[in-house]
Computed example of a mutant assay.
Amino acid sequence: MGSKNVQLVLDAKAILGEGPCWNEDQKALYWVDILGEKFCRFYPETGQNESFLIGEYVGAVVCAGNDEVVLATQSGFQSYHMGQRTLTPLVDPEAHLPANRFNDGKCDGQGRFWAGTMEIIEKEAAGSLYVLETDYSYRKVYEGVGVSNGIAWSLDEKEMYYIDSMKKLVLAFDFDAEKGEISRSRTLIDFAGEQGFPDGMTIDEEGMLWIAHWDGWQVSRWDPRSGIKLESIEVPAAKATSCIFGGEGLDTLYITTARKGLETDQAGNQPHAGGIFAVKPGVKGTKTHAFGASYTTKKKE
């Protein structure tokens, strides 16, 4: 495969572009530059990209109402009001672990925010996976994580998929959507034979997983039932970090990338590393869920 036409849509030159999520109402792509200590809101139709500097590592962003987001940062979960540019700390599950930071995260269909941590220097498997409930209480649901990364749920919400980049594994859990609980962890895909490390992940409307390869120059599509790789799309940056479906009818796959560790002399063969790319893979995606807004309760006013 790999012949699909991947286009640069934003030459962001992010140090560590990550964690994209699509806001259907705003037709906007939210994403973070973790090491740039900011999150951004990008409008593909106009090419406009707004930056919101937070002043500490921002691992993930999820929408929470019209002008608000919830962030998973180095110092825990925080709420941010974009109009007022105000940051409000919510809860820090790892206040006692200053050497850790939050990394990737995502909301489930009930509006809970799942996000995991990692050691900043990436030596020990000192991270954990947490759930921020819509009332701002939290639970630790899994531990012994190296680099907590991509999360996705099966279309019937009976399984959750989860990536530990350090261990090069994509795990599957049984998922109880009502209680927001996971059980029976098992290895779904072992990336040992793949190029690079599994990083961010999303799921399409056919229930197939799309995984970004850190240091692998690609995003790949997998069947979670068989664990088989179905196809791969080449990305003109070595460090593809994550992907999410957006655009008209969710037919566009947006891909975030990183420049981290790229020496100036290496930038020649990937001048747009750290940019956001887009491709129409021929399959549609699933919607991004917002924090606190479940299927059942959120009605268009």
Rank of each mutant, 00 (worst) to 15 (best):
G17C: 07
C21Y: 02
C21L: 11
W22F: 05
E24V: 10
D25R: 14
Y30K: 03
V32H: 08
V32F: 08
L35A: 13
L35M: 14
K38I: 00
K38H: 09
G47L: 02
G47K: 04
G47N: 05
V58W: 08
G59C: 04
G59P: 06
E68G: 11
V69E: 05
T73S: 15
S75P: 00
Y80L: 14
H81G: 13
M82W: 00
Q84E: 14
R85F: 01
P89E: 02
A99T: 14
N100C: 07
F102V: 07
K106C: 03
C107S: 07
A115C: 06
M118K: 12
I120A: 11
K123S: 13
G127D: 00
V131W: 05
T134L: 04
S137W: 03
K140T: 14
K140V: 12
V141P: 05
E143Q: 13
L155T: 06
K158D: 12
E159M: 12
Y161N: 00
K168Y: 01
A172R: 15
A177S: 12
K179L: 12
S185N: 06
A192L: 09
E194L: 05
G200P: 06
M201V: 04
T202N: 09
D204G: 10
E205P: 04
E206N: 13
M208E: 13
V219I: 12
S220G: 08
S220A: 15
W222Y: 12
S226N: 04
I233M: 02
P236H: 01
A237L: 01
F245A: 00
D251M: 03
L253W: 06
T257R: 00
R259L: 11
G261D: 08
T264I: 08
D265Q: 12
Q266N: 11
A267E: 11
G268K: 13
Q270G: 06
A273C: 09
A273G: 11
V279I: 00
K287H: 07
A290S: 15
S294W: 05
S294R: 11
